[in-house]
Design a binder for these strands. Structure first.
Lengths: 146, 146
DNA sequence: AGTATTGTTGAATAAATATACAATTGAGGG
DNA sequence: CCCTCAATTGTATATTTATTCAACAATACT
C-alpha cells in the first residue's frame, strides 16, 4: 500500500548497491525503478532514513546508510530471494552468519557440473563457476540450496 | 608551523566537542579560537578531513568525524603501505597474521558501495569488488582500513 | 636569478540540499 | 455527511555547501 515505504526501501537498496553522489542521481535511479518523485521528497526521505553524504577520499561524495539501517537491512525477515551477486564471472552468495560453510559444502557436493569450487567464510560464499557456464545457469544451480 | 594544520586540528577538536550543524557555526567557533577563514576554505577543510554532515534523528544536522580519522587519532601509525595486489578484478590484501578476519569485517561494514564481498583467511583477505568499480576506487576504499 | 610547479586562500558563483507553504488525500469522530 | 487532524507531496524558494577563478606564496628545478 504505502508507496512511500516501498520508495524508502528502494532508496536503501540503491544506496547500498551503487555509489550515488547526489540526489539528482538518486532521482534517476528511482525513476528506473518506477518511482517518480521530486528532489524535495527525496531530501525528506533521506532525512528520514538518516542517510548521510560522506566523502569517499577521491574528491567524490557518496550517500551512505547509517549503521543502524544497515543492520536492519541485513536482517529483514522471511527472505524469498537468494542473495546472489556477480563480480565478473564469480558469484558471491550472502548467507546468515555461520551458514556459509554448510551451504557451500552442499553446493560442492550437488552441483559439480556448473560449479568448479566454492570458498566460504562465515556469511559469504565465493562461487567459482566452470568456464562456459552462464550466470543464469549458475543462479539456477545455486537457487536449490539457498 | 603550518597554520592550516593547526586549523584542521582545531576543526577536529570543535567537531568532537560541540554539536556543529553547519559551516557558518563552525566558522564562528573557529573565530573564537583565533582562526579567521572563509566558508570556502572551511568547505575544503571539511572535505579533506572527510567530516560528514549526518542527521541526528531530531531533524537536526551534526558534523561528525569519520571513524578513520578517529582511529588515526588513536593510533599514530608508522606509515605502512597497504599491501594490495590485483588479480583480474579481484584484490588480495595481506595483513599481519590473525588480523585478516577483523579487517575484512571492517571492510564489509564500511565500504558497501565498492566492495561486494570479502573472504578472509588468517593473514589474507580476498576482496571482490562490484562490477564496474575501478581498481583506483577499490584501493581508495580499502586504504582506510589498512 | 628565473621559471615552473604546487598549495592555499578569498570572492564570487554554481550546485546541491532543505524547507515554507499550499494543496491533496485518507483516517477517524461527531 | 461534514469536519478535523495528520501525513504526503510538489512548487518555489531559501539555505547551505562546493567549486571556479584569480591571486599569492613557497618550493623545486635549471
Amino acid at each position: 500500500m504505502s508507496t512511500k515505504k516501498e520508495r524508502l526501501d528502494a532508496i536503501c537498496g540503491i544506496i547500498r548497491t551503487k555509489a550515488i553522489s547526489n540526489q539528482e542521481e538518486l532521482l534517476k535511479e528511482l525513476e528506473d525503478s518506477g518511482f517518480s518523485v521530486t528532489q524535495a521528497t527525496l531530501s525528506r526521505d533521506i532525512k528520514q532514513l538518516k542517510v548521510a553524504k560522506v566523502h569517499d577520499g577521491n574528491g567524490d561524495y557518496v550517500y551512505r546508510l547509517p549503521e543502524t539501517s544497515i543492520s536492519k537491512q541485513a536482517q529483514p525477515e522471511g527472505k524469498k530471494k537468494p542473495n546472489i551477486e556477480f563480480s565478473g564471472n564469480l558469484a558471491v552468495v550472502k548467507t546468515r552468519p555461520g551458514y556459509a560453510m554448510g551451504i557451500a559444502s552442499d553446493i560442492d557436493t550437488h552441483a559439480p557440473n556448473e560449479i568448479l569450487a566454492t570458498i566460504a567464510g562465515d556469511d559469504t560464499i565465493l562461487v567459482i563457476p566452470r568456464n562456459g557456464v552462464s550466470q543464469e545457469k549458475v543462479i539456477a544451480a545455486l537457487s536449490h540450496f539457498i
